[in-house]
């Protein structure tokens, strides 16, 4: 997975695209650019990863506002931050932009320092939101580990005890107890496999577990 943050720039003016590409590639973003709302939606449908979208308000074809509404049908503010880039600065236009689902906006002509700050703020919020979601998931996994540990210990104790008895007495009923206990263990192990496949990476687990410890401490 690429460590660089991926930014999609959507603007029908080649000059504006060039300007934003220049600014944000210097900030370490991996940039992709398209020139219409239609191309933006197509790109988002196919791209593996986009971390933030800068979307021009006034474009030919599907407007920026319509494009934004379509994006929000699939992705929330937290999943994909979208900043509208607009020359409009009337209260009504700004309210309309936020109502349509924008995280924030950048006014034209672009004040570079302000634009960078606004993008960085959204990236920080996204990162915090991801960490919080991971921490919640890790908390649940930790609780499950404690439960499964307990659930494995019980049948394991039974199986080991029954085996010791079986060695001395050779009774079928002890073999049956061992069999039942092992089946129980196998059942729990298969549940644990389900949790392992649920998607939290090891590094994320350690990072979030440390975060939880810090908060508890």
């Amino acid at each position: 997975m690429s460590a660089k943050l991926e930014m999609l720039i959507v603007d029908d003016s080649a000059m504006e695209r060039k300007l934003l590409e220049n600014i944000f590639s210097k900030q370490g973003f991996e940039i992709s650019s398209v020139e219409s709302g239609e191309a933006c939606l197509e790109y988002l449908g196919m791209a593996e990863k986009v971390d933030i979208v800068l979307l021009d308000y006034a474009m030919e074809g599907i407007s920026g506002l319509e494009t934004l509404k379509k994006i929000r049908e699939k992705k929330t503010h937290l999943e994909l931050p979208v900043l509208m880039v607009t020359g409009k600065n009337k209260t009504g236009d700004i309210v309309e932009t936020f109502s349509a689902g924008a995280n924030d906006f950048i006014t034209k002509p672009v004040d570079i320092e302000v634009a960078i700050s606004r993008v960085n703020t959204q990236m920080s919020l996204s990162s915090l939101s991801r960490q919080a979601a991971n921490a919640k998931e890790i908390h649940a996994i930790n609780a499950m580990i404690t439960t499964y540990n307990h659930e494995i210990n019980n049948p394991l104790t039974i199986a080991m005890g029954s085996y010791e008895i079986f060695k001395r007495k050779r009774r079928d009923e002890d073999l049956e107890k061992i069999n039942t206990a092992l089946k129980r263990i196998a059942d729990i192990v298969s549940k644990i496999e389900g949790v392992v496949d649920s998607g939290v990476e090891f590094e994320e687990y350690i990072e979030s577990a440390n975060l939880l410890k810090k908060h508890k401490g």
Binding site: S13, A14, M15, K18, L19, N22, I23, K26, P109, V110, D111, I112, E113
Partner: peptide
Amino acid sequence: KNFEGMEEVVADIAAQYFIG
């Protein structure tokens, strides 16, 4: 002042402006 520290971007956008 706006392009402070990235003055070369002015040349880049100017090139686009002259075409556009």
